[in-house]
Design a binder for these strands. Structure first.
Lengths: 151, 151
DNA sequence: GCTAATATCTGCACTCATGCAGATAATGTT
DNA sequence: AACATTATCTGCATGAGTGCAGATATTAGC
């Protein structure tokens, strides 16, 4: 068995990440969402319910701007405000499970085209890919923390 | 050999894509770039040099707004204007190969953490992943086209 | 050569997200 | 019970990105 071909990976991977990010931006634009809104929803989906203040910290916005952010997302039905029973000053924000229909429509092409890519894979390959995705996702989130802390 | 576990993939994959997009947004924000600027640079890197008008079509902006977009990117040194020798009305825009140092810094954490993920893979796994990235990138770009055309 | 069409650029105005500062409500502290 | 602290929200102002319409330069057609 030969050693891993990291050179080829290094050539392919940046273009791949680029494509994923571009697709994310195109999707957001298609449903009329700005980058902050997209980021906030993604953060809430990943980390789960959090307070308005925590969301402000994650996004780097002031608490005032975050209030407006939540207003926008709530108006779109992407997010829900839940009063914190333990501390009635606080507002918990959570992503609504059934995301908007328009968002679903915008993601349909990617779903279809990627399903075709995955369909050609063997069971072993799917297992390899799944494990990679499982490990890479936290790595990206750690990198996000590092970027934020560096500022 | 069992059949591919698409159920698990379906559970893991959206969170992974979410993480990639979030990281892209955080990176852009860290270097003070807006979503359009990020999208434009990514498009130029992927598709290579193109005219101002073509970039306008890709981004969905008017030609006027695109002029300002190119101004911003050029001021940052991310992009270069090249006069078209065949048609002197036209301006070709191309990504500068040596991207800004600050962008490189912002990507460093991701590089490091992902290198660790890839380091644990066998040569076969790297090959599987590389092939997937190679096939998925065009799929995302096709999806982008589909989203754009649908509007 | 003259006119029409095309590509990019510029002036102006507008929208929208955001920061800032103060207001309101709730909790903790003594 | 009074006061300080904390969390979210609101009013106002600002700035960045964008559309629109017209200007300029170049090419194509007759």
């Amino acid at each position: 068995m030969s050693s891993p071909d990291f050179a080829k990976l290094g050539a392919v991977y940046p273009r791949y990440l680029n494509a994923v990010v571009l697709h994310g931006l195109a999707t957001a634009q298609a449903v009329g969402m700005g980058p902050t809104d997209l980021y906030a929803v993604g953060t809430l989906v990943f980390h789960g319910r959090m307070t308005s203040g925590e969301l402000a910290a994650k996004t780097g916005l002031t608490t005032g701007a975050t209030t407006r952010l939540i207003d926008r997302l709530e108006a779109r039905g992407l997010v829900r405000r839940v009063p914190d029973p333990a501390d009635r000053r606080r507002v918990l924000v959570e992503a609504v499970e059934a995301q908007g229909v328009d968002l679903d429509d915008a993601l349909a092409p990617a779903r279809e085209k990627l399903a075709r890519v995955f369909a050609d894979c063997t069971a072993d390959e799917i297992a390899t890919l799944t494990e990679h995705f499982e490990r890479a996702a936290p790595a990206f989130h750690e990198a996000i923390e590092a970027i934020r802390d560096a500022r």
